[in-house]
Design a protein around this nucleic acid. Structure first.
Lengths: 247, 247
DNA sequence: CGATATGTTGAACATTCTCAAGGGATGTGG
DNA sequence: CCACATCCCTTGAGAATGTTCAACATATCG
């Protein structure tokens, strides 16, 4: 695995695909050099668990490529996804010893890692990093709270539509194609992962996806390909206003 | 209203009840003086809306006394509480113009406010404030994610028990009485507010509270007084381990 | 005292879950 | 190359949990 990524292992920060969005986004050249000195890349295969809840975390870092999930689990096996980690998202919490969630790779991944201690000391000296991390954390908090509305108050159909709009929007943002009208993307999640995200069973997810397809809100190509002919219609189904604000 | 609080209006930071927990917790004497210079107190009555979602926020600040809620609302009136603001909690987001949620006082409140601009510039110069704010935001993110598990995967009875344990624990922390075994506190929320927090209807909340009372998990004194004879039993009902960790 | 806000309880109903069966894909070993 | 296992997904039928609608209780406040 590591061998196939040797070109990534020598990646310069200046060429990094997440340079302008990750925790290093606001760093100037000097600061970037300090990070460059202590960073190292690490790769994971789809399905691999990066961190177990309760484990000691010896590093923090950014997702460079791939997708991971944050999940919480109850004794009897009920699990709830509490976050989706995409390229540029930050993993780990400075100032805390142990992980609070399971972190699992959904696809093959590459992470840009920093040992926790050096990163923490570096953070106290480079306010740009701390500032960017605060900004990112506030964004995550907003996302978590938006998701609380989905979990607490939306119907199964609205939940599915909400998830699809998020994935669609993110995909559009990533390829910088304005959501002209339609959208088309790959579902990076299994029905079970979707269910864990939405607080549903996988059967209900399957049924509601089928229903949205039957009603023409989405078109499926293969098992994972999703096309949204009319994005505003999807937003409507999600219980959101066409302009993307809460409905 | 303001008149009855005149003694608070001249409160010195050194004597502030939230001095060691709020955003100013890590400030030294000099830094505290800078905050002291730009702070002002403001009070609200129970039921009053501090901020409407979408409105311009001209200040940020800390809850000194009282309780407020953060809520999101959908077009058709469905609402979800996404946060409970207690003394020392921070309101507002530096670097953002408009509020993302409704903030409503549940009880009479006193806030320690800072106009946003001066606070933001002060923050760039005093890393202790930024650092503490990051820490608090990370804690809130953890709390939000813990709540996602409650909303997504717990039964109505477990939800009620979860809310009661949180309120009980917080009450214990506030009065520094270790949760020896039992606990007794006032419910600061109506049935409807509890329902909005838990993603339930108020009828279901009422029924499940009655059921917990019938089963001896809690004892009610009046409408709002709650006594928990065996806190571990309550945690069990919440689907959590006796030691407070996820079950 | 009536008006309003808050809380309780009941009965019918709806949505989602549970349990169960079966249908492609894909991959592996014979 | 085929048989078989595994993984993921779909669909159905019945059960369960929570909601809705409605009536009524209790408390506060003018």
């Amino acid at each position: 695995m590591l061998k196939t990524l040797s070109h990534d292992l020598s990646l310069q920060c200046g060429d990094c695909p997440i340079r302008h969005r990750a925790v290093c986004a606001r760093c100037d050249t000097d600061e970037l050099q300090l990070l460059e000195d202590i960073k190292y890349y690490r790769s994971y295969e789809a399905g691999q668990t990066l961190v177990w809840s309760g484990d000691r975390m010896e590093f923090v870092g950014s997702v460079v490529t791939g997708i991971a999930t944050l999940t919480q689990t109850m004794e009897d096996g009920r699990t709830q996804m509490v976050g989706l980690l995409l390229p540029s998202d930050f993993v780990g919490r400075p100032g805390r010893e142990t992980a609070a969630y399971n972190v699992v790779a959904t696809t093959d991944m590459v992470m840009c890692c920093f040992r926790k201690k050096p990163f923490e000391t570096l953070m106290t000296r480079t306010p740009h990093i701390a500032h960017r991390l605060l900004e990112m954390t506030l964004d995550e908090l907003d996302a978590a709270r938006e998701w609380m509305l989905v979990l607490g108050r939306k119907t199964a159909r609205e939940k599915i539509a909400s998830l699809l709009s998020i994935l669609g929007r993110r995909d559009a943002a990533l390829r910088l194609t304005g959501t002209g009208d339609g959208a088309s993307f790959e579902l990076p999640l299994t029905r079970e992962a979707m269910a864990d995200y939405l607080g549903l069973t996988l059967e209900t997810v399957s049924r509601q996806v089928s229903a949205l397809k039957r009603d023409g809100v989405i078109v499926l190509s293969g098992k994972r390909g999703v096309t949204v002919p009319d994005f505003n219609r999807l937003l409507g189904e999600a219980g959101e206003d066409s302009d993307g604000r809460l409905a």
